[in-house]
Each structure stands twice: as structure tokens, then as C-alpha cells.
Design a protein around this nucleic acid. Structure first.
Lengths: 339, 339
DNA sequence: GGAGCTTATTGCAACGATGCAGGTTCCCGG
DNA sequence: CCGGGAACCTGCATCGTTGCAATAAGCTCC
């Protein structure tokens, strides 16, 4: 009894396939008697509709895909939670896939997902996807890009204002009287625009006060994990001209790694070095010291993304792609404010 | 041009539908000339196969579902990474769903996923699923249960030996000369068998040395988050008979929360209180102090689970459900060993 | 020049479900 | 006793794809 089909149920209940379908879906009028017979047969055979077939016929699946680079980066798993919750209010189920930032996987998932009918829509947080990868697409698929922006893409884009956020973070450190503020997490030009926007905010905040940026304090990291932050911090501490008195990390994991290095080396936070992160992940709220950070409104990001997707699902006229900004705020905690 | 179909491509290329299908799938022999024409049409129309239809016909989807309670619990996201990697070696793509431990969602996903043909198989890490929920199923679906065991289930089960692991952790603390060891994370009988297995290991380790367990040191927590650990630790510290000298937490998040409370209260780790966690999540390796923990072999868990799933996918005779144990080891770090 | 192959291409049916339109049966009022 | 309308049930076509088996065309070889 591999899998019972509508036909098997119909046979057993002595009615037509169509009637079984009606019962299962609650369509039309069905006599009490017939309904009972069908339901009995359904139960006995353990029938469950084949969603592939149903969706093929109906033209929709009720599934949204959320594609992120790394699930075990807390920012993405927390974002995933928000997206799942938001999608559920629209009756959608979210399935998640992880690309590890591999361009092939990201590309493949766009192809498969966006228009291969397995998913009704795709929310993609790209890491390595290039403009060329999207250029061929005409934007008619229900696809929303999160975070990393891709120039000239024909798709909606949801993010926070990275320049303003980085500006605020840097300003906060400047307000504390710090003068040698390191920026950790820069990326080379073609790798990530987001990191560069944050560097721009960092520079702008300095410029607004007429301060020059010590270029050697702007350090790039290969990735955005704790180990990268720990390594970058170690390198900063080993510099001949002494440690910085503050660090702005481009995400919380970098910041937590940096904090670990600082504490290991016997430095005090924030007295010796103040630390600001980015993302407001839960780990930062329970770290010792707790982490000051830029808190992007993940619920808002999820809401905007899901709304755009569902908005595009209707048959209405295609709207031009839009750029949406979710709010953010600075969350001040022990790593800059003392305990 | 909503979505181009095989037929549209065929029309444009001036060949039959079947030939286009052959080209797309690389089947059979196709003349160079024809192939070129078809590929040109495919590109021009932006054709991509409708996976629903293809899968309906082929009878498989190449998708495995991994269903976990909470993705932003690092253990699960790290496990997800392992499962994704393992599944990929078999040519499967993994999609992930999060249930929040809601029985309805877990149930629904078993139904939908396991035998509704959307997924070829399901790897489920249940939280609140009861025996009754599975009782009706005959076990013929390719479903593997992780972690929490469900009595009498007709499905394969993969986990580590929780009793032995908890025994080892407790023994480690006893070896350090600790005498008042708290256990944080117990669960009432009907909620989680895993927690009870760990409590059993904790008790057994005491019993093996002829020590009595102070029942008031075994504390339950509503969930397994940092905040639960922080609260439980605070309660332990406020007891009239003074703080314990060691804590065994049933997962790393609880431990990290407990550590936060201890540090806030001015206690030293491990001098005043030694802490052991469970799961070996990345956050514990970068915490200050770094966290001693039981490290389950997540890669092994993933491997066993995926192997069982793929093993059941063949047409071979159904094998009886098995109980598989993945290895684990104690990872000693600063929270018990000093720095 | 035709048997016998290989190569290239195709039509038909089917996967399992639903949309649509139609067909019975039954009951009612006139 | 018949026309008209609910109420209930059904058959057919179809969603987009692939498996199967057959056809058509080209080539070799005696």
C-alpha cells in the first residue's frame, strides 16, 4: 500500500473519483451518507493528497523559499524565524535553504525555485550572486532580495540603511570620546556592497567632525564569523602604535570574537576598548559584557519581504522593482556603557 | 510570458515536445543542428522545467525535509548545516522547516511531507510530538527521528547516548572535587524523554560514587534558552543554603545564560562554580570563559540520518526500524578547567 | 538494390489531482 | 401528472512533464 490515491479511495467507497475529491476539499454538497463512506475509506487507506499533483493542477504550492548563505549565523536564523512567522499569517509555509554563499547554489536556487513552480516565491539573501547572474532574468518571478544589494537587478530589495546605521554606531563611539576607532569587517569592492556601505557610514561620521580616518584601522575580514573577529582583533592589538580605543564590528559575531580576544589579552571593555556590533543577535544580549549593537528590525524586514512577494503573486499588473528600507536603532549595552 | 512550457519551446524551435525534453534532459541522441535550435529557443523564452510536473511524472523530487523545533537554537542550525552537507553528497537538496515545537505543525509536516510526495524523505527532530501522533502511521514513509525518542514509533531513530553523556559530564565535575552539583534543564515526564535520560546519567554518576543527589539541585526549565539558564541560575544562587559549586546544564544555551548570571553576581568560573554544557555550539567556544561541554558528533548524526532515509527510498523490502547511536565526547574548556 | 543497423525524432499515454459542465434523482407546487 | 429547481454526483479534459515504443531517415554491406 505504498500510497493510496484518490482512485483507490473512490473504488473502496464505491463512488467516483470526483466525489472523493469533493469530500476531501469540502467542495460542493455531499450527502451525509456519502461523506461518511468516503471518510471511512480515506481513514482505512491512510489516504493523503499528493501535493505535487494538486499543486500542478492548482498552479500554486503555498510554499515560499527563504535562501540564506549560512543558517548557523544567528542573524540569518533569527531572520528566518521572523520570515516564517510573517509568512504564516498569509497562509504560506516557508522552506529554507542554505547556500554557503556558493554562487552555483544561489544561482541554482533562483532557477529552480523562482520559476520552476516548486515555490510560489523566493526570498533570497545573496552573498556572492553577481549582477550578471540576475541580468538575464526579467524580474517577472516573485523574488525579493534581502540585504546585499545587486545593482540593476529587476527585483525588489529590502534592507536597512547601512550607511546611516554605521554612521550612528561610529558617532556613538565618538561621543564617548574615543579617537582611535577601528572598523572590522570591510570587504573588497566586488565581494560585498553592504560592507562598503558600512565603511562609508564610518567615514562619514568621522568627516562630519572633521576627523581623519586612520586607514590602517579599517580592516577587512575573510568572512563574518567569531574566528575572523578574534583574528582581526589580535592583529590590531599587535600593531606597533598600540591598540585602538574602540572597535566597530560589521556584525555581532565579529564583535564577540573580538571581545574574546580582548578579554584574553587582559583588556577591559569598555574602559580600554569599547565595542559595537551589528545585527543584535541573542548571543550579544547574554554575552559578558553585553554587546552594544545596531539592531535591524528583523520583523520589519520579514514583513516587507513577504508583503512584496505576496503582492506580486496576484495577477495584477507587474509593478516596477522597489527599494525598501526597514528601520534600525542603536542598542546601547555594556560593551560601550560599562556595567 | 508568464512561464514558458515545453510546448512553447517546441513550437518556436519547430520540433516536437518530446525532442525538447530530450535536449533538456540530455537524453538520447540529438543532432547538433537540432540541439542548437532547441537551446536557442530555450534561452529566448527563458524556459525552465516545471519541477512539479517533472516530479509528478518521475515520482521523486530530490528534496529532503529537515524539520526542527527552533532554527535559532544554534544546535539545530549547526545540525542543519551537517544534514545539508551530507544530503548533498547523495544529490539531495534539503529544505528546512521550523515548528516552534507546536504539535500541530509537527503533525502537519509529517503528513504533508512524508507521504504527500513533496519531499522524498523527512528528518524530524520532534519536540512535542506524541506517541499517538505516530501510532497511526505504518512506518512505510521515509522518516527518521532525531534526538527525542518516541516510544513504539515505527520509524528509525538517531541520537547520542544521553545517559552516558550526562554520566561523563557529571563524573568530570565530581573528579574536580565538586560536591554540590546542580542539574539544570530537567523536564516533566511527558514533555521530554531526552532531559530525563540526562537526569538519569547525572544520578547514575552520583550513585556510582555512593553519593546522594540533593533533589533541590535538580531544576526544571520551561525551555532551553539563555534566559531560562539565567533565571534558573539566579534561583539557585538565592537559595538559603548557598550556591552550588558546579552546574551541569542540559544544553549550551542554558549554560551560557547561567554563566552570565554567575559573572553578573561576581562569582568566578570555575573557581567558585564550574559549568558544563551540552551540544558544543560555536558560541561556547568563544564565550569568556570558554565552555566545557558534551560534544555530540553532529556530522555522524547527519550521516546516519541521511543514510537511513536514502536507504529506505529504494524499492527494497522494508526493514524494521532501528535505533542508531552517534558518538559524543566531553570537550573540556575554561569553564571547568580554569584559563 | 534491399536487408539490417544505427541515429534522430515523434505520438500516445500516464503521473494524481482539480475545473467545468452536465447528468440523475428527488421533491415541490400547480 | 408534469415542469422546474435543488441537491447530489459524475465524466472528461487538463496541468507540464516523461516513459515507452514506434516511425522515419540515413548508412553500410553484400
Amino acid at each position: 500500500m505504498a500510497t493510496a490515491r484518490l482512485r483507490d479511495v473512490a473504488e473502496r467507497a464505491g463512488v467516483s473519483i470526483r466525489t472523493v475529491s469533493n469530500v476531501v476539499n469540502g467542495y460542493a454538497q455531499v450527502s451525509e451518507e456519502t461523506r461518511r463512506r468516503v471518510e471511512k475509506a480515506v481513514a482505512e487507506l491512510g489516504y493523503r493528497p499528493n501535493l505535487l499533483a494538486r499543486n500542478l493542477k492548482r498552479g500554486r504550492t503555498g510554499l515560499l523559499a527563504l535562501v540564506v548563505p549560512e543558517l548557523d549565523v544567528p542573524y540569518f536564523s533569527e531572520l528566518a524565524r521572523a520570515v516564517i512567522a510573517e509568512a504564516r499569517t498569509y497562509g504560506y509555509t516557508v522552506v529554507i535553504d542554505q547556500t554557503d554563499g556558493e554562487p552555483d547554489r544561489e544561482r541554482e536556487l533562483i532557477m529552480r525555485g523562482a520559476s520552476a513552480a516548486l515555490f510560489d516565491g523566493v526570498i533570497l539573501s545573496p552573498l556572492s550572486l553577481s549582477q550578471a547572474d540576475l541580468a538575464r532574468r526579467d524580474g517577472s518571478d516573485p523574488l525579493v532580495l534581502l540585504g546585499e544589494r545587486i545593482a540593476e537587478s529587476p527585483y525588489d530589495h529590502v534592507a536597512i540603511d547601512n550607511v546611516a546605521a554605521a554612521y550612528t554606531a561610529t558617532e556613538h563611539l565618538l561621543d564617548l570620546g574615543r579617537t582611535r576607532i577601528a572598523a572590522v569587517g570591510d570587504q573588497p569592492y566586488d565581494t560585498g556592497e553592504t560592507a562598503q556601505l558600512r565603511t562609508r557610514g564610518y567615514r562619514d561620521a568621522h568627516a562630519a567632525r572633521g576627523l581623519a580616518v586612520d586607514e590602517s584601522l579599517v580592516v577587512a575580514t575573510p568572512r563574518f564569523h567569531r574566528s575572523d573577529g578574534a583574528a582581526a582583533m589580535a592583529a590590531l592589538l599587535d600593531r606597533p602604535d598600540g591598540p585602538p580605543d574602540a572597535v566597530f564590528c560589521y556584525n555581532d559575531l565579529l564583535a564577540l570574537g573580538a571581545i574574546r580576544t580582548l578579554l584574553t589579552r587582559g583588556l577591559r571593555i569598555p574602559e580600554d576598548v569599547a565595542v559595537v556590533g551589528f545585527d543584535d543577535i541573542e548571543a550579544g544580549r547574554y554575552n559578558t559584557p553585553t554587546l552594544t549593537t545596531i539592531s535591524p528590525d528583523k520583523a520589519a524586514i520579514a514583513r516587507l519581504a513577504v508583503q512584496r512577494i505576496t503582492g506580486r503573486l496576484g495577477d495584477g499588473p507587474q509593478q516596477p522593482p522597489v527599494e525598501l528600507w526597514a528601520p534600525h536603532r542603536l542598542e546601547i549595552r555594556e560593551s560601550t556603557a560599562g556595567s
